[in-house]
């Protein structure tokens, strides 16, 4: 088994796919270099990112398969599952054979996996539009999140459209990546914050009271609550911060 490593960027992945298509290698894994754990048995090849190759692959997918398929692999890539690169390659290999009907083949593993990863990313993106909590600081708002998937840049435009006059930062603590909005435009930048402690004001407390008050105790159903709002997201929810 041969392993291709790429630099974790989407262009890097597409470059690796380009090489894979010309290599005729039957069994091949494509893995982000950050995810790779060295063993002696495997043969590895580091694929440098090449914009030209990447563009060619993107173009080919859009023309010979479909735009949907291109979006599917992009979302699957954002899932950051360790096998996402390998699964994307399998999906594309089939895609170039089947063409635009590829997504009808949901009974085949190659397609089912990619649809599954896409759904997880889109579900988390949608959930985060609701679960982001901003803390008020004198000059800006700050939100800390730790999403499973790399979705920060997908949610930034939503908040920019809603709060055009505010300055805010959304920090993906897991990836040490922050989306900055300065009241005019937004960009992604690396950022590390060590503390989890967050600002508190009267609205924090009002919200906590509201959250407790609005539940109907005769209908208690915490299992259902956790199904819709998994406990892993509670860490940064203002309503679950203990009152100081």
């Amino acid at each position: 088994m041969k392993i291709y490593l790429y630099d974790s960027t989407f262009n890097g992945l597409l470059s690796a796919i380009h090489v894979a298509f010309y290599s005729k290698e039957p069994e091949l894994e494509i893995i982000r270099e950050d995810d790779y754990l060295q063993t002696t048995i495997q043969e590895i090849l580091y694929i440098p990112t090449n914009q030209e190759k990447s563009d060619k692959v993107a173009q080919a997918i859009k023309e010979k398969i479909s735009l949907t398929a291109f979006n599917n692999i992009y979302y699957a890539y954002l899932s950051e599952y360790i096998d996402a690169g390998t699964k994307i390659l399998a999906y594309l290999r089939l895609g170039f054979k089947k063409g635009s009907e590829i997504d009808c083949y949901s009974f085949l593993d190659e397609v089912k996996s990619i649809h599954g990863y896409r759904s997880k990313v889109l579900l988390e993106k949608h959930r985060m539009l609701g679960f982001v909590r901003f803390q008020k600081y004198p000059d800006y708002f700050l939100s800390i999140i730790e999403p499973d998937h790399n979705i920060l840049h997908l949610i930034m435009p939503h908040f920019v459209a809603r709060l055009p006059k505010e300055k805010f930062i959304i920090l993906d603590k897991k990836r040490q990546l922050a989306g900055f909005y300065n009241g005019d435009h937004w960009k992604l930048m690396p950022l590390t914050i060590n503390t989890d402690s967050q600002a508190e004001d009267r609205y924090t407390l009002l919200w906590q009271d509201y959250f407790t008050t609005i539940a109907i105790k005769e209908r208690l159903n915490t299992k259902l609550q956790k199904k819709f709002m998994p406990a892993r997201y509670w860490k940064y929810l203002t309503e679950y911060k203990t009152k100081s």
Binding site: K165, I216, L220, N221, F228
Partner: peptide
């Protein structure tokens, strides 16, 4: 330069202990 917009699909921001969306 107003505040807010609506999302056609709707967005749930939290879920109370009875499992209902806020």
């Amino acid at each position: 330069d107003g505040i807010g917009n609506a999302s056609t699909a709707g967005i749930c921001h939290s879920f109370t202990t009875d499992g209902r969306c806020i």
